[in-house]
Amino acid sequence: MIQQISVFLENKSGRLAELTRALGNANVNMRALMVADTAEFGVVRVICDVPHRALGVLDAAGFGATITDVIAVEVPDRPGGLADVLETLDAAGMNVEYAYCFVEPTGEAAVDIFRVDDPLAAEAALSAAGLVVVEPGALYSAD
């Protein structure tokens, strides 16, 4: 399971810049960032190298942030690769709340982040299907 930081933001100009600056000043390195928004507010989701420290930084800077457990999967670089992952989750009865993608610095594989109800069961189902579940250690240090 991967620990993702979720931040509640009102749609106010400059707020996202403030958030990233706060993390930057604290020397937190972001691996992925995804913004989900409505007309009035948004949720910013961040994968970074030191999630717990980042949470403290955001809290001190006046942001409302929590940690959410998500799963990360290496998606095979071929047509139908993502469909394999989603079908496996579907077959296991896992509803995907949201998903986003980023590319590892090595550039060899894409990593997809999924938010599901039961991350542990989802990881087991994916491993059983021969898919590569990304361990936290590969993305960030256990801080």
Partner: peptide, 15 residues
């Protein structure tokens, strides 16, 4: 204010 303890990760839950 959204509560600091609310797991506000999902837009659906916020709505």
């Amino acid at each position: 204010e959204v509560g600091a303890d609310f797991a506000f990760d999902e837009i659906r839950e916020l709505e």
